[in-house]
């Protein structure tokens, strides 16, 4: 459904952040982008959602296809109408609005009131925690509640592709588990595709079918979740080591990532 073909992203006309990334998300599929800080994961998502423009970034090469159509020229709100929604890193809820107003703010594409009420109802069944604090100011919700609100708000647009940037950021492990379960459930029940950017590779690989590993603005590895999980390099560098390795005894050159050699 979504296909990136060899895209390049340049910030400020100078800085080349993405150096040719190709990836694909199937309809109803779940895909993860893994990689360390500054690898270009968030930039890739912004290139898809159209949020590069306010940061003076630009896709300078390659094709961004949604259902076979290149939508590079569309603005971010127009892309949301196509069915591509982006949950920003760091949650970005509307802090001075209530959770209910946060959800309503994301309904500019819907006309009928009944539909909006139905969507609110649906989102609140996914995130029952939000119901209890529906009239508080969103800025005072806990980190986990804000993340749920940010995801729920994105679901209000009835996306065909949900992109999540680091939903586990700064959350307790139990909460991460809860949120990932909900994401997996929505993905299963509504056949909505999911593109997930994560540092927490263990959590991410538990709900996706396919994953790409990005480093320095390039894809260095890709494969099914199982293949990635069992890859020794991924284990060592992204899954917290494969069992008991005494790092003092491992020679420096052995610990280098194989694809950098």
């Amino acid at each position: 459904m979504l296909k990136l073909e060899n895209i390049e992203v340049v910030y400020d006309h100078v800085f080349l952040a993405i150096k040719g990334i190709s990836l694909e998300v199937a309809e109803g599929g779940a895909v993860a982008l893994l990689g360390s800080n500054g690898a270009g994961k968030s930039t890739t998502l912004k290139a898809i959602s159209g949020l590069l423009a306010p940061e003076r970034g630009e896709v300078t090469r390659g094709e961004v296809l949604f259902k076979g159509r290149d939508f590079k020229r569309l603005s971010a709100p127009e892309r949301v109408r196509l069915g591509i929604v982006h949950v920003l890193e760091g949650r970005h809820v509307f802090g001075h609005l209530t959770p209910l107003e946060n959800l309503i703010a994301a309904t500019s594409m819907h006309r009928s009131r009944a539909k909006i009420d139905g969507l609110v109802e649906k989102v609140l069944t996914y995130f029952p925690r939000l119901k209890q604090r529906i009239n508080a100011k969103a800025g005072y919700l806990s980190g986990g509640e804000q993340q749920m609100l940010a995801i729920g708000r994105a679901l209000m647009t009835e996306p065909k592709l949900l992109m999540l940037d680091e939903p586990s950021l700064g959350l307790a492990p139990l909460l991460v588990e809860e949120i990932f379960e909900i994401i997996a459930r929505v993905n299963r029940e509504t056949r909505m595709s999911v593109l997930l950017v994560e540092q927490n590779a263990t959590a991410a690989l538990s709900i996706v079918e396919h994953a790409y590993l990005i480093e320095n603005g390039r894809i260095v590895m890709s494969g099914s979740a199982d293949t990635m999980r069992s890859n020794p390099d991924v284990q060592e560098f992204y899954l917290g080591g494969a069992g008991r390795v005494d790092y003092r005894n491992v020679k420096h050159y052995r610990r280098r990532k194989r694809w950098l050699a």
């Binding site: 306010p54 709100p77 920003l88 609005l97 309503i104 703010a105 309904t107 500019s108």
Partner: peptide, 23 residues
């Protein structure tokens, strides 16, 4: 109103407004 809520959303956080389809 719904439009008013969107206006307040824009005053709160512009990138987030873009990301959920508000012009």
């Amino acid at each position: 109103t719904r439009q008013g809520v969107m206006l307040r959303a824009v005053s709160d956080d512009q990138p987030a407004s873009w990301s959920v389809g508000i012009s």
